[in-house]
């Protein structure tokens, strides 16, 4: 009745030594990623960008409104990425890697700053490309929130932040061997620090309230707000963020080579690139 045919011409050939791309980024999804990133910069950095007379500068409005909008933005980007082609193999691989991330999350919840989730995210994005990394970041955070009961207004922000980390890991230049491990370590340290910084920034007015001297003042000079934010960060979460950056970097340094080898072997076994199409047998 039907004949399976492997078409290699349409969807990119399997090239030995090149990483597979289970979630391809086309022109539409690339545009969506750029627009979502521009929106994300505003949503995370709103305390520095908001003007004094803006209606959302006070109270709890901004994180809630931006959180709801972010959820829709992430949903749209995921829909466009899925439309570009996400087959059963990509879904199963994403599901398993997200499960590993979600299972690792409780290990880090109690102890200061240990967040092993990011290391599997960075390595997954590295092995399977930026599109895969983006979806892995968003779904891992969502799944782990479901498992640990961490659903809250911060979830859309965490999803976009982790999705950026996976996306960035996939966009790193192609080097192999020791230089690759060194590159990934540097990226891990930077990404973890930045993640902590932007998460803090977006929830600084929300978490602290307006009554202290390190609180957010809407529409104040950027430098003054930044100084207060630095003081707030230093007194609350710097130890946490540094601890996370150090543990993730050490984990990447020690395990990048074997884990990447395992991921790439699984990618070769799954043979993501050739697309199988069924045509009626005439």
């Amino acid at each position: 009745m039907s004949l399976a045919r492997t078409s290699t011409a349409s969807a990119g050939q399997f090239i030995a030594g090149r990483d597979p791309r289970p979630v391809r980024i086309g022109a539409k999804s690339a545009t969506a990623l750029v627009v979502a990133t521009v929106f994300g910069i505003g949503a995370f950095g709103w305390p520095l960008l908001v003007s004094r007379d803006s209606g959302i500068a006070h109270g709890l409005d901004a994180p809630l409104i931006f959180g709801a909008m972010l959820l829709l933005v992430v949903a749209v980007v995921l829909a466009l990425l899925a439309d570009g082609g996400m087959d059963a193999k990509a879904v199963a691989m994403l599901g398993v890697l997200a499960a590993i991330g979600a299972a690792l999350r409780p290990l880090g919840a109690g102890t200061a700053g240990v967040e092993p989730l990011f290391f599997i995210l960075i390595l997954g994005g590295r092995a399977f490309g930026p599109g895969f990394g983006f979806v892995q970041g968003a779904t891992t955070l969502f799944a782990s929130a479901l498992l640990t009961g961490g659903v809250g207004p911060w979830l859309p922000f965490q999803m976009l932040g982790a999705a950026w980390i996976g996306l960035g890991a996939g966009l790193l230049p192609a080097v192999r061997g020791r230089r690759e491990v060194a590159l990934l370590c540097a990226y891990a340290a930077m990404a973890c620090l930045l993640y902590g910084f932007v998460m803090n920034l977006s929830f600084w007015p929300f978490g602290l309230g307006p009554t202290t001297s390190v609180s957010f003042v809407p529409g104040d000079a950027v430098v003054d707000n930044l100084t207060r934010f630095a003081a707030f960060s230093f007194s609350t979460s710097l130890g946490w963020d540094l601890g996370r950056a150090i543990t993730v970097t050490i984990l990447v340094a020690l395990t990048a080579a074997p884990v990447l080898r395992a991921l790439r072997r699984a990618g070769r076994k799954a043979a993501f690139d050739p697309v199988v199409t069924f045509e009626p047998n005439s």
Partner: peptide
């Protein structure tokens, strides 16, 4: 339109205990 993403989450949630 979000079926794949939802499926990834379902797979992850059911596979983490395994």
């Amino acid at each position: 339109a979000l079926y794949e993403a939802g499926l990834v989450v379902v797979v992850a949630v059911s596979m983490a205990p395994a």
